[in-house]
Simulated assay, not measured.
Amino acid sequence: MSNNLTKRHIVQKIYENSNYNHDDVRSIVQNTLDIMQQALANGQNIELRKFGVFELQVRKSRVGRNPNKPETDVMIPRRAVVKFKAGKEMKEGLDKLNLDKLDPSS
């Protein structure tokens, strides 16, 4: 089983720690994500205090290579990407992370 946190897990945790019914929590979480997605699609950055910033950046167009046909150049167009910058509190939490437990192959 994956060690990732999913939207389903978030809904379940909020449900367990609140007096809201499950459907209301699921709706609130989905509405929050929809608002965030729409803001990014409209060119807005998202700043969540004590968490971090979702920031839009534009990647320049560039020439790439097809690994199956390395002799052929492929033009990769300019595009918008979302970058996440962790906030101070998140950085402090990441500094305390046990890296050996996270990636035992290192």
Rank of each mutant, 00 (worst) to 15 (best):
M1F: 11
M1R: 10
M1A: 06
N4Q: 12
L5T: 15
L5P: 03
L5Q: 00
L5C: 14
R8N: 11
H9D: 15
H9E: 13
H9V: 01
I10D: 04
I10L: 15
I10G: 03
V11N: 04
Q12A: 14
K13M: 09
N17Q: 09
S18E: 05
S18N: 01
N19W: 00
N19A: 05
N19I: 02
N21W: 07
N21A: 02
H22C: 05
D23N: 11
D23L: 04
D24K: 08
D24A: 07
V25Y: 05
R26I: 00
S27M: 05
I28E: 00
V29H: 08
V29F: 07
V29A: 13
Q30E: 15
Q30L: 09
N31W: 03
N31M: 11
T32F: 14
T32Y: 10
T32M: 14
T32L: 13
L33V: 04
L33R: 01
D34S: 09
D34L: 11
Q37A: 05
Q37P: 00
Q38A: 04
Q38K: 12
Q38F: 02
Q38L: 09
A39V: 03
A39M: 00
L40T: 00
A41R: 15
G43H: 03
Q44K: 15
N45S: 02
I46R: 04
I46L: 07
I46Y: 06
I46W: 03
I46D: 02
R49L: 05
F51W: 01
G52E: 06
F54L: 14
F54K: 08
E55T: 14
E55C: 11
L56S: 00
Q57N: 10
V58W: 01
V58C: 09
R59I: 03
R59G: 07
R59T: 13
K60Y: 04
S61D: 15
R62M: 12
V63G: 00
G64Y: 08
G64P: 05
R65L: 12
N66R: 08
N66H: 06
N66S: 09
P67G: 04
P67W: 01
P70Q: 04
P70N: 03
E71T: 13
E71N: 15
E71P: 11
T72F: 00
T72K: 08
T72D: 07
D73M: 01
D73Q: 10
V74S: 08
V74Y: 02
V74I: 15
M75L: 14
I76P: 09
I76L: 15
I76T: 10
I76D: 09
P77Y: 06
R78S: 15
A80R: 14
V81P: 08
V81L: 08
K83R: 14
K83G: 14
K83E: 04
K83M: 02
F84Q: 05
F84G: 11
F84M: 08
G87I: 12
G87S: 11
G87R: 10
K88M: 08
K88G: 04
E89I: 05
E89W: 02
E89A: 09
K91A: 01
K91D: 06
E92N: 11
G93L: 12
G93E: 10
G93Y: 03
G93R: 12
G93P: 00
L94C: 10
L94F: 13
D95W: 01
K96S: 12
K96V: 06
K96N: 12
L97I: 13
N98G: 02
N98W: 03
L99H: 04
D100K: 07
K101P: 06
K101A: 15
K101S: 05
L102E: 03
L102P: 07
D103S: 13
D103E: 08
P104M: 06
S105G: 04
